[in-house]
């Protein structure tokens, strides 16, 4: 069955902190649908609620109202334990800083999510090496990641996704801090993942990266801004791209 993600009137309110009189509505009634083989880009300035929305989609952040549904599962209704089990089976992540464990070797970082899926050591090693070689990192599998450049780290993070593909890929500012060449690299990698059938939710404010999206959802103060316009823009971009 094709993966389908549905975000329904999602709300997350943080209590007032640091002298603020009002609670912060980090995500305020967000509604959208994403499907397999599609890149959905959340764009907007820092602090507009993109990362919180991504965390809620992944079941890492609770919601105050609304729901996130992935197929038949209501992610926002799962307990912490069940949410972890759902995440390990369905969600891949690409982080702004690549999300690597510094003291680990490249190959161990790539294999890390597979450990929690109880993959056999031999299988996960083979998958990790294949993914690293596919991205031209075959010569650095035994190196520790704290000695890698920013671009290399980002590619290792992507190798982790390729080695163990999941139906839902969440990318949080994957091109932040990268030069044009490396951003282009990330763009290509996202296209590879889309071609593999992943449903990709991308949070970014990099206009270069937005061009790869099938759907663009601008956010302001926790809300989607003129979603219809955004969808049209996404459709126009998709048409232009094709």
């Amino acid at each position: 069955m094709t993966f389908r993600l549905s975000v329904e009137r999602l709300v997350r309110i943080f209590p007032a902190q640091g002298g603020a009189a009002e609670p912060t509505r980090a995500v305020d009634g967000v509604d959208f649908v994403a499907t397999a083989g599609e890149i959905t880009a959340l764009v907007g300035p820092s602090g507009c609620g993109k990362s919180t929305l991504l965390a809620m989609i992944a079941g890492l952040e609770p919601c105050d109202s609304g729901a996130v549904r992935a197929g038949a599962v209501t992610v926002t209704a799962l307990s912490a334990e069940k949410s972890a089990l759902w995440r390990r089976a369905h969600v891949g992540f690409l982080f702004q800083d690549a999300g690597l464990v510094d003291r680990m070797r490249v190959i161990d970082n790539v294999m890390l999510p597979m450990i929690y899926r109880n993959a056999k050591p031999r299988d996960r090693r083979a998958a990790a090496i294949a993914a690293l070689e596919r991205l031209g990192l075959g010569n650095m599998i035994e190196r520790r990641v704290d000695g890698l450049s920013g671009g290399e780290r980002r590619r290792v993070g992507f190798a982790r996704i390729l080695a163990d593909p999941r139906p839902l890929l969440i990318c949080d500012e994957p091109s932040a801090g990268l030069d044009a060449d490396n951003t282009e690299e990330i763009r290509k990698l996202l296209q590879i993942a889309r071609a593999d059938g992943a449903c990709i939710i991308l949070a970014t404010h990099d206009p270069e990266l937005v061009t790869v999206a099938d759907k663009v959802l601008p956010m302001r103060r926790g809300q989607l801004v003129a979603p219809d316009l955004a969808l049209r823009a996404g459709a126009q971009q998709a048409a232009a791209a094709s």
Partner: peptide, 16 residues
């Protein structure tokens, strides 16, 4: 903390 956060993100339960 960063390492544990990543592990949780990848599907480790608090029990793990």
């Amino acid at each position: 903390r960063r390492e544990f956060s990543l592990r949780l993100t990848f599907g480790a339960t608090p029990g793990d």
